[in-house]
Every structure is written in structure tokens, then in C-alpha cells.
Amino acid sequence: MESKDDPESMTVPPEGIPDLECAICYSQFNNVFRTPKKLQCKHTFCLECLARMNVKSSQPDTIQCPFCRALTPLPTLGLPKLDNDTSIMSNLPEAMQHVYSIRFIRSKARLQVKHPQRVVPLPQLRTVSSSLDVGPPSTTSQTGSHETGTRHRLPCMPPCKMFIMVVVVLLIVSFICIIIIMTKTS
């Protein structure tokens, strides 16, 4: 019987068939951006979730497992070069067992297919994009060693839309004031 602390028990259901969905986002694994990547602690998550974690991390050269907190150093060529979980890959449909070559551009918070012309849309995926934004880009120093902080921007609104919103708010406030004055004079 497996213990609750056993890393394998968290990724393989009791039937012996590995779980085919990411434990973070609950999306099914695939062979593009949701490729199952195995950390050194043997926990498996999709590439997209790991990229989202890495973009927000102050340690860009490692990934901290969300289950056991163990650190996994990233390969020299980056996050997409982490080992694929072959037990999960072998249980995907045959057409999904070929993994596309992906590049992770941390400074732009983007996953990108290296050769998008070779991506064949699968029936299960309907459309396959050649890139995926994984969060707001981090501001990193030019040396690339540490993150200096994440810039938070307010949503940009076109001036005409902002003007309309201000006018509507002023009309509502005016209407409420008129109602209050009319009820006091009655």
C-alpha cells in the first residue's frame, strides 16, 4: 500500500493508469503546451503551468514543486527541456505521442512552437496556436540573473469609453440627488 507522502501516489491513480490531467490546472495533457513535464521529485505538471510558475518566480533557474516544495534546477536550454513523463505520454492518443519543439521566452512570458508550420491540429485540440502567453512579463535585470519586480499596470481604456463612463456616473449621481431633493420637498 502506498503512503500519502509517496511522490508516485500523487501522479498515478490506484488502477495503475497515470492521471492524464495536470494537477494544477486540471486540463488534459497534450503534446504542445500541456506536455507532461516531470520534476526531479517525480511529480508531473503541464509545461504551461510550470511556465506560469516560472514567470512569477524570483528564481528563474529552478522550479519549486507545488506539492512537496522540492527544487528542480532547469536544464541549460530551459523549461521545455525538462523530461517528459513517458508513462503519461504513452497513454495519450497515438497522434499526440510526438511532442512538438517548444521554446520558452521568460522575458516575454511566452511559450512558442519552434516550427509552427509543422503543427498539425488534432481533432481533440480543434485549433493549435503557435504561441501562448503565460502571464505578465517580468521585469528582469539585463544580466538576467534575478527578477527585480513585476510591474502592475492599470487596464488601458480608450478616452471615448472613459468619457462615456464618467458621464453615466455623473448622470446617475445627479438623478439620485434629484430624487432625494424631490422626496424632501414632498
Rank of each mutant, 00 (worst) to 15 (best):
M182P: 01
C160Y: 13
L132Q: 03
I88T: 02
C65S: 11
A95R: 10
T11V: 05
C156E: 15
L71H: 14
S131Q: 14
V119Q: 03
L170W: 05
G149V: 07
L154V: 08
K184V: 04
P13Y: 11
V32Y: 05
S87I: 02
L170P: 01
H43M: 05
P14L: 06
M165A: 14
I180N: 04
V166N: 15
V55S: 02
S27I: 04
I179M: 08
S3Q: 06
V12F: 01
Q112K: 09
T139V: 12
V120D: 09
V120N: 04
T148A: 13
E147F: 06
L74S: 07
L74M: 10
Y26I: 12
P14G: 07
P13A: 15
Y100R: 04
S186V: 08
E48Q: 12
S129T: 05
I176E: 06
A95Y: 00
K81H: 09
K37E: 09
G144K: 09
Y100S: 02
L111W: 00
V173K: 11
K4Y: 08
V134P: 00
L71A: 11
S87C: 07
H152Q: 13
S131M: 07
C46H: 03
D83T: 10
Q64S: 13
T139Q: 13
S174R: 03
I17L: 08
V99H: 06
G78I: 04
C177K: 05
E2M: 11
P93H: 11
F175M: 15
V32E: 00
L132A: 10
P13Q: 15
V168D: 11
E8W: 07
V113R: 07
T11P: 01
S186R: 09
M165K: 15
T185V: 10
K161Q: 14
K114V: 12
K108Y: 04
K81R: 12
P121K: 14
S141M: 11
V113F: 01
K161G: 12
C160M: 13
Q124F: 00
R52L: 00
C177E: 08
R118Y: 09
P158I: 09
L122D: 08
Q59R: 12
I24V: 14
T185I: 10
S145K: 15
R69L: 14
S57A: 10
T11M: 05
P36F: 01
L79E: 03
F163M: 12
K81S: 08
I164C: 13
T185G: 14
M157D: 14
Q97K: 05
I172D: 05
R69C: 06
I176M: 08
R110V: 01
P36C: 10
T148R: 14
P18C: 09
Q117F: 13
G78K: 05
L20W: 00
L50F: 01
S138A: 15
K184M: 14
V169H: 04
H146D: 08
N91R: 06
L154C: 13
P13V: 10
